[in-house]
Design a protein around this nucleic acid. Structure first.
Lengths: 346, 346
DNA sequence: GCTAACAATGTAAGCGCTTACATTGCGTGA
DNA sequence: TCACGCAATGTAAGCGCTTACATTGTTAGC
């Protein structure tokens, strides 16, 4: 079996139906402008030949693709998957098709994907987070393509966004942790380079620490890549240090679950021996034992709103104000006041 | 801010650089055929104008997109996400871009997405599972596009596949469960309609039951959609029946985790009161307590191999033999022999 | 019966690009 | 010095489609 690649064209259909290409095109795009009998004949030919309009040609002639592109850091993070699913459903309702690409958290790949999507005629783009090389911003500007940022709300950023305040949300969580009496806080953060969500969450923790009048050395930060295993390793490093923290705040739920897993291995009881927090509130967070205290992010809602906003931008060619969604602290079993031995190693 | 949509064209670049469009095109596609000085001038113009080739036009002229399309049932299932990530990485190495669309497990949407991807000039397609309307198969045939199926191995199916034997793998797991003495087995299956993986896994269980000489009424099946919650509900229905099963086999890990969650709520100890099994071996499986006995599927490997196979098909225009990957039973703590009270309700 | 008005369809230009082929300009060997 | 060959570049024909405009065929009103 070989693949000579010779799909039927408009012309083939026209010939089969004994009409001109214009008529076939009209059958497909403005059927009411073609008389019934002709239309039936044409549609029959379309069916029989298994004709699909060539997208490239169509785009070139009609200047519109009804396609939205999205570039996410990775498909493996449930958080993006969920929001994106809602985003896609929202787009479908408005007649748009979603094309997804992933950047593996690398800005060079992201840029490549942006170009690929634009080249494919995306009418609009959804990007994650605001951290981005200014050169790409210029490029986007030159392309004159509507771009929306999600997962991060920042009204001052160059691109409009639909998201939540990562910094403030994390600060709220840290306030709670500190309010319970924790004075030595370990932080397991995602890599902050090129990732404003991670950076802002970390900043939120520092805000809380400063607000509580604690010294900067109250927090010990480890940056690591996104995975349960790396979270576990970082946790071990933190807990086996000379002065282990009484609370470990993680940049996301996946890292937190890794931390809790390692705690079990180290026979450390959560939250008696050490408190653990996450961020995102993915399903996993309420499945682990004890359930994870985290920040709930309305991913689905964010996806839906992003779809609405981007469609608006594309359809009416105008920008749209940034939208902030609320992200709330979800107190669960993994956090408690520290034990009495707040000074020495356990 | 508005979006007049008027990106620079090849022609603009040519004018800016003072050369012909052909030379610009050559700079971009076969740079070694252009003298250095000219190339520099052209590239400078490209930079300054922020030029991106129009994909539609390029495809139409070159008849090749270097794009592979994949349609998965849902992005929310980690299992697909993981395999797809590997698939994409494999494609990237060969210079292909991956475009992903999801069908929400609906064949009508899948068909729509297939058309969308083909229309966009996908050079090849990755589909999940073999269950598919023959009409789409004909259409695919007519389009003459290489199509590969993943997640399901079936050398007899019309499309080549890279996957594992869902039926035999599940049978192996069921053999083990039955071998431990279970005689009343509850099954929580994903919806089997249009989903050969679910159907074959169920068939595998029935194979094991038949092989063990048990009657068909040894198994009670509930079909439900894919979610932790639905798994929990199905589990409750099963366990509150007149004659509850001593083992509940689930079509995938997510349903199984839902079942275990509900078991905890019902104060049923796993595996003492009831054994639970999953399928896929996602990370979650080893995080729950007790760890879940399941079937390990090499998702990443599958993604990599699928990429290699599809690139082969596209590049050399020839079909490729189906590849079978091994999926092994992973015994963990959620399965044990049944208690003594195998007859009456607990 | 004739023509105006309109509906149905056909004709053909052009969307932005690649590439076969034509042209130009240079270095080389006799 | 000149013809030749070859490398660098230009010219122009499509790729499959949409759509403005032209043509044809009906119908209605006189």
């Amino acid at each position: 079996m070989t693949f000579p690649r010779s799909a039927p064209t408009l012309n083939d259909v026209a010939q089969a139906a004994g009409v001109s290409t214009a008529t076939v095109s009209r059958c497909l795009n403005t059927p009411e402008r073609v008389i019934d009998s002709t239309r039936e004949r044409v549609m029959k030919a379309v069916q029989e030949l298994g004709y699909t309009p060539n997208f490239g040609a169509r785009v070139m002639a009609a200047r519109r693709t009804n396609t939205i592109g999205a570039i996410i850091p990775t498909m493996e993070n449930a958080v993006f998957a969920r929001g994106l699913q809602a985003f896609q459903e929202g787009l479908r309702e408005s007649g748009f098709t979603l094309l997804v690409a992933s950047s593996s958290y690398r800005s060079d790949i992201e840029e490549e994907q942006i170009r690929a999507l634009i080249a494919r005629g995306a009418d609009g783009l959804l990007l994650i987070g605001h951290d981005r090389d200014p050169a790409i911003l210029d490029y986007l500007q030159a392309q004159n393509i509507p771009v929306l940022v999600a997962w991060s709300f920042d009204p001052g950023a160059p691109l409009p966004s639909v998201g939540f305040d990562n910094r403030r949300s994390m600060q709220a969580l840290a306030d709670t942790v500190i309010g319970m009496g924790h004075r030595r806080i370990g932080v397991i953060s995602a890599m902050t380079r090129g990732n404003d969500r991670a950076r802002l969450r970390l900043a939120g923790i520092r805000d809380a620490v400063a607000l509580a009048g604690l010294g900067e050395d109250a927090v010990t930060v480890i940056e690591t890549t996104y995975a349960i295993e790396t979270g576990a390793e970082a946790f071990e490093t933190l807990m086996t240090s000379d002065s282990p923290p009484t609370a470990v705040m993680c940049g996301n739920d996946v890292l937190a679950v890794g931390a809790m897993k390692k705690a079990r291995e180290l026979s450390l009881d959560v939250p008696r021996d050490v408190s653990v927090t996450g961020f995102d509130d993915i399903e996993l967070a309420s499945l682990v034992d004890p359930a994870l205290t985290t920040v709930h992010v309305p991913h689905r809602e964010m996806g839906r709103r992003a779809a609405r906003a981007l469609v608006e931008m594309v359809d009416h060619g105008r920008s749209v104000p940034s939208e902030e969604l609320a992200a709330h602290v979800r107190m669960r079993g993994s956090v408690a006041p520290p034990g009495r031995d707040t000074g020495a190693k356990a």
